[in-house]
Design a protein around this nucleic acid. Sequence first.
DNA 1: CAAAACTGATCCCATTATGCAAGTAGTTTT
DNA 2: AAAACTACTTGCATAATGGGATCAGTTTTG
Lengths: 180, 180
Amino acid sequence: MVEPHRSGCPINLTLEMLGDRWSLIVIRDILVGNRRHFRELLTQSEEGIASNILADRLHRLVDAGLLSRSDDPTHRQKAVYSLTEPAIQLVPLLAMMGAWGRRHTPATRVLSVRAQLLEEGGPDLWSDFMDELRSLHLGRPMKGPSVIAKLQAAFAKAVTGQKDVTPTPEKLPRRVKTKR
Amino acid sequence: MVEPHRSGCPINLTLEMLGDRWSLIVIRDILVGNRRHFRELLTQSEEGIASNILADRLHRLVDAGLLSRSDDPTHRQKAVYSLTEPAIQLVPLLAMMGAWGRRHTPATRVLSVRAQLLEEGGPDLWSDFMDELRSLHLGRPMKGPSVIAKLQAAFAKAVTGQKDVTPTPEKLPRRVKTKR
DNA sequence: CAAAACTGATCCCATTATGCAAGTAGTTTT
DNA sequence: AAAACTACTTGCATAATGGGATCAGTTTTG
């Protein structure tokens, strides 16, 4: 029997699962941007993920138990990707990453607004957010007001009032792979 | 002028800097294990990093401003690697990663002890820990008691009292690259 | 003082990951 | 019936990763 892991350290095992350039981007887009379909993830990706990479990461994340895949009733071959509980519990980690990135990378102001909100909201807001994600992705009932709506509102406000150099993220005219 | 980044999102920029399988392992070893030399990082690595990868990551991390490199007075060609302030501020992120990994990966009990302590200590402990790291790596004066000593003590206790299946991490007989 | 051990790397080479562009088979809309 | 949309797959080129040996100095050891 071979040992499939480099070590039993929790940090290492987390890195083995998520330590690449795209996995957390995909999760971020599903989580914050509520992208649920392949196409949404592909074409609305701020970073421009390639289709083969996206397909690969979706497979891996489903295999790793971070996403679940189900059929979309409105379209025979449309798949819906949902977060699982482990992925939802990545909210604090993503919040921390955003907080660190805001301080120590050349992040643009507009794209940092949601990270700032998540950071300032702290564990209480994360908890509300996670509850909301559970209702969205796991079909649990909801009570409180929408954190996602809050994030989107803050983001929209930042975009309209921006003095930033970056183009508005609603869509830079990124070339989609359907060609002629 | 080319755009060197995929996007200005703080999470993305953090991933561009640290989103690989080894960078955070190196930082973890320096930060928690107080490994300061190439050889220490190479041979005492729980995960068995290759020397070329280690050399590459040390270079990148120094270039990225997360580590600094200085000469060791006791040995002409010995280098000492120190954490910079941005790297020290990764403590909460690493704590979160440990916390998540403890719950959602097959982490061994012994190797999870320090992660648990960091998690339960919360922001107050992280802050003490970061102060201690500043004194160790940036030459700042210290006041409080040592968090690193705490972590090591808890770890040592867990190792001696373990019923775990994993070998003791003091050193699995990993083959070092000096041969014959 | 010569041999051995130690230092931070570097080199070679195989494997794996990434990324672009195009293509596919089926489904829905027009 | 044609066009557009769906989730991918394939081919191919390039870049990153990783294992193992090696290296040129430096220090320690016998």
